Computed example of a mutant assay.
Amino acid sequence: MTISDLVMPGLRRNPRRAHLLVSTVLGKHVPTDPDIVIGAGERLADQVTNVLGADADPVVFGFAETATGLGHCVATRLNARCYLHSTRRDVPQIGTLAGFEEGHSHATSHQLQPTSADLFANDHPLVLVDDEISTGATAVDAIRALHEHSPRGRYVIASLVDMRAQEHRDAVDIAAAELGVQIDSVSLAEGHTVLPDGLVESVGALPDPVLNPVGTRIGGVERLDIDWPAAVPEGGRHGFLRENTEEFDAAIRESARTLGARLDHQRPVIVVGHEELMYLPLRIARALSDSGYRVRFQTTTRSPAYVLDRPGYPLRRGFRFIAPENGEDQPRFVYNAQWSNEDPLVVAVIDEAADTDRLTARDGLLDVLTASGTDVLLAVVSGADPLSLRAARLGASA
């Protein structure tokens, strides 16, 4: 595959980095066929297997927020013993094992919050998954943080696209020598980014983007509660173990059946996950697609990108809304959320932490979507509980 098969150039107002590589296979900014999203993760996992061998038995780590679902796809394909992704949501009752910073991101701090430190306490190869590697600095910082907790001899950095210059690759090699480890890299495509001088200033000088479009009618909202088993992880935020797979898959099938009973086969559906909650709604989207529904998948994001309704630009429509989680001050965004020449139903999949009054308030997610004329089915995944998950794991190891 080539870079142009996987990403399109976009812009964002960020003093650290004004360009944005918008993935066409990730299901973040652009509504994407769930089979394409999962297929990209599986191809990336196969690249990892080519490096490590089929008997390596790795653990997998994904970067929040963009690669939480991608990392889980890789882990599933590898049948990994454990998958963990970093998080920007603080869960005090679980505690933070370690943390690191991402220099160019809009939200820079990453936390690692497994249910116990023992989940990563092994010497198996560790695969770090991200959608894009620009310098490798964030991956190296993560390796240092994880290596301090649980040293191991082998790491693999896996990304959809690798845009590093030679100096960045050399820096990873230097870090590997300092730690006394082997760090390999795999990707679906490699390339480099050429930026015009003064891009940050030029983007900053652009007119404010037109966000939150208003339609000729107000869309409707319906709510559906999806019961999720308390001791089954809904993703990798607190660690997903190989032995969780069977119960997770069963819960996905039941969730898709529950949702399918509320859908019309004649109307296209866009399943929209919420930030780090990517893999669960992705799997629901695929199950609905397998049942004959026309489905695309994407998620909300913390990243403020520049919206421009012009052919060929990937961010044609954008919505800014207040974060539904209590205590969060920064706005959230969702882009595009549309289906060419048709009127889709948006199925917004959220977890309990996002099920607040802020979700339904003025300028909340439901308000801005319905103001554009979009009909929304709100699917609340309720029941998953990190403390119940921890207790179940402690019981299983007793």
Rank of each mutant, 00 (worst) to 15 (best):
E352F: 12
I36D: 07
A392Y: 01
A158Y: 05
A348V: 02
L241H: 11
D35C: 15
F297G: 06
L97G: 11
R223A: 13
Y83N: 06
S109D: 13
A305L: 02
Q182V: 13
V25H: 12
R310E: 14
T216Q: 03
A285G: 10
E222P: 02
L97P: 04
P58V: 02
T193L: 15
A18T: 04
Y335H: 04
V7Y: 08
D162N: 12
F321T: 05
L70C: 07
P268W: 02
A384H: 13
G395Y: 00
A107L: 06
Y313Q: 05
D264K: 05
E276D: 04
P233C: 08
R13M: 01
D385K: 10
L377A: 00
V210L: 14
L84W: 07
R320I: 09
L26D: 01
I218A: 11
V161D: 05
D357E: 14
T87I: 06
E167W: 12
H274T: 14
R77G: 12
I157Q: 05
A40Y: 08
G198H: 06
H238L: 11
L224Q: 09
F61E: 03
S291L: 12
G41L: 01
A305P: 03
D118L: 15
A64H: 05
F321N: 03
A107W: 00
L195P: 15
G136Y: 03
V127N: 03
C73W: 10
E222C: 03
Y335G: 02
A145F: 09
D130T: 05
G39Y: 09
A121F: 07
W228I: 04
Q111L: 15
V181H: 05
V22K: 01
T245D: 00
K28D: 01
V194M: 15
G204P: 05
